[in-house]
Each structure stands twice: as C-alpha cells, then as structure tokens.
Computed example of a mutant assay.
Amino acid sequence: MSAERVHRTTHEVSVDAPAGVVYGLIGDAVTWPLFLPPSIHVEQLEFDGRSERLRMWVRASGEITSWTSRRTLDPARRRIDFHHELPAAPARSLAGTWQVQALAADRSRLTLSHHYTLTGDDPRQAAWLEAAVDTNSRTQLDRIGRLARRWDRLDALVLAFEDSVRVNGPAELLYDFLYRIGDWPQQLPHVTRLTHTERTPGIQETTMDTRTADGTRHTAESVRICFPHAGRIVYQQSSTDPLIAAHTGEWSVVPDERGVTVTAHHQVLLHEEAIAAELGPHADLAAARRHVRRVLGGHSTTTLQRAKSYAQNAVTVL
C-alpha cells in the first residue's frame, strides 16, 4: 500500500524595497520567465480580477515540466495563494502562499510557503520533489531580492521590441523553418554551430553559437516551447553576452486574407554593471539599449528574411 504524508516548507527573505514593489513582482506571473528563473514560460488562461488560472513551464532539478496553477490575488493584504495541479506522482498537487510584509517604507519581508501530500512508495521521487521545491524556492526568493533592490531602475533595464516581415507564402512553411532549428547553421549566416534535443514533443533544448557583424562570438542555451496550431514558438535564452542578464522571446506566424505576418518578439533584462567594460567608460544605459537592439534585431531580421525566402521559394518550386 502506498504511503501518504503531508510536507510543509517555509522560506523567507528580507528585501530592500517597498512592499508594494515586491508584491508587484510576484503578482505578475507572466513576466517570471524574464525575471524569475527557473520559470521558462507562463501563460495566463483565465483572469477575473482576483483569481487566475495559469499554465506554467518550469525547470525543476534539471528537468523541464509543466503544470496548471490557480492563484488568488489579494493586493490589499499583499498575499497570493496558489494551487499547482501537478501532472504525476509523487504529488498530485502542491499549494502554498506568497506573503509580503512591510518592515519600513523601503524594506519588506517576503515569505514563500508550500504544503503538499507525497504519495507512493518510491523515495527517489519524493526526494526529487522535495529538492525541487527547496531549490526553486531559494532561487526565486534570491532573484526577487536582487531585482527589487533596483526597483527604481527596473523599467529602464527592461528592453522590449519586435521585428516583422510580410510574406506571400504558406504559414505552415514559415513555422516549419522556425521550428526546424537544427537546420539553422546551414541557413543563417550568424549561426555557426547548434545542437538541440527534443525529448518531449514540442519542447526543444538548444545550444547555439552566433557571430555578430564585428566578429564577436556568443554561445546561448535556450528552451523553446512550440505551439504549432497557434503558430507560436516561445523561448527563454541564457546568453554569454555580458550586457544581457536575461532574454525571453517569441516567434509568431499570423495569417490573414492577404498573406502572413511573421514576427520576432524580444524581452531583455540588461546587465548595467557590464556597460562600461563592453561599450566604453562613457557609455550609458541608453547606449546599451541601442547596442542590444541592433544586435538582436539584426539576427532576428535575418532569420525572418530567410524564413520568408524559404516559404516563397518553396511555393515557386511547387
């Protein structure tokens, strides 16, 4: 007979930021992939102003998993209760609470508590879940603490932009080009090497070497979540570019009656401490924003144009 036991954990951190700022960071879960790894992608499925239903993709103890989460938001009390519906044993569900307490005008305490029932007789599964909850909790709290300390600079450190092209070709072929990332070293001049795996259908893990126009080389690891029926591929990328602290994005293919629009969306968190070393002692945050916009935009525009040629040339051959 399988055993069941309730497990409870509590982690907390003091944060040098107003309580409202900290609550805002935990309240906007859709931004977590940029701000709070190990979250990879979060989609809001329902929201009525107080409660929401989310679909979350998360890296837990080195593995990528996904679940549905329901959250109840209470901004007046600065409290969020959540309930994760996990896909498999050793726990069918995991619940908990985020709580923010004001300690002073510019200082607060953030507490994250969990409770869940472990089921089954496999101690390895139970140990995996316990380790994942503990590691992820500590990672999230540490990240929130470091981000919140820059609350007055955070808007300037975030860069969001997109590039689009119009295509007279099938949406399916455009998506196929973006999905078949293993072919990119032969198709894109800035991609010099790429390896990828897809152990779970629709979830790709990649390592890609790129070269900028000035010859600088960077290596980036990405997790890509593919939604073929919606014509979307979302990703979270870790970059060795010193100016980039975090990078998320999306490729979207949107057909209409006159053709197809294919778009590259980017969200970047800049690493302010690296600006002087990378761009010179007189460079500022505005210069860093322009530089990152130019480099990432140049690569994505090249990819969009090659996808356009791929789709339109295939139609011509047919």
Rank of each mutant, 00 (worst) to 15 (best):
F227Y: 15
Q236M: 11
V253E: 09
L269A: 04
D241T: 14
G249V: 01
E257Q: 14
H229L: 14
H291D: 14
L285I: 10
T248N: 00
V234T: 15
P228H: 13
E272K: 01
T216C: 00
V262F: 02
L270Y: 05
G249P: 02
E250K: 13
G231C: 11
A276K: 09
A245Y: 00
H282L: 14
H265A: 09
L285Q: 02
T219K: 00
E278S: 13
I244H: 03
G215L: 00
S222M: 04
H218N: 03
D256G: 08
G249I: 06
E257T: 15
A220R: 14
G215F: 09
V223C: 04
D214N: 06
E250V: 08
E273Q: 11
Q267P: 09
R224W: 10
C226R: 03
S239E: 11
I233H: 07
T219I: 00
Q236K: 06
E278N: 11
D214W: 06
C226V: 15
T261Q: 06
V254Y: 05
R290G: 08
A288C: 07
S252M: 06
H271T: 12
H291E: 09
E250P: 05
V234R: 10
R290A: 15
H265V: 03
L279H: 09
Q237M: 13
P281Q: 05
L243M: 04
V268N: 04
E278K: 12
D256N: 13
F227I: 11
S252C: 08
V234D: 06
F227G: 11
C226D: 12
A246E: 01
A245W: 05
T263W: 02
V253G: 00
S252D: 08
G249H: 03
G215M: 13
S252F: 01
Q237L: 11
I225A: 10
D256L: 05
L285T: 06
H218G: 00
V268P: 00
H218F: 10
P281G: 00
H271R: 13
P228E: 05
H282K: 13
A264H: 03
A276Q: 07
I233A: 11
T261V: 15
A245C: 06
F227L: 14
S252G: 11
D214K: 05
T261K: 11
G231E: 04
D241I: 13
L279C: 09
V253D: 01
A283F: 08
R258M: 08
H271Y: 07
R224K: 00
I225P: 03
A245S: 10
D256S: 05
G231M: 01
L243A: 08
I244L: 02
L285W: 08
Q267W: 15
A286L: 13
W251N: 03
Q267S: 10
D214F: 04
G280Y: 03
S238I: 14
A287R: 12
R217S: 12
V254R: 15
Q237F: 07
P242I: 10
C226I: 14
A286G: 05
E257W: 08
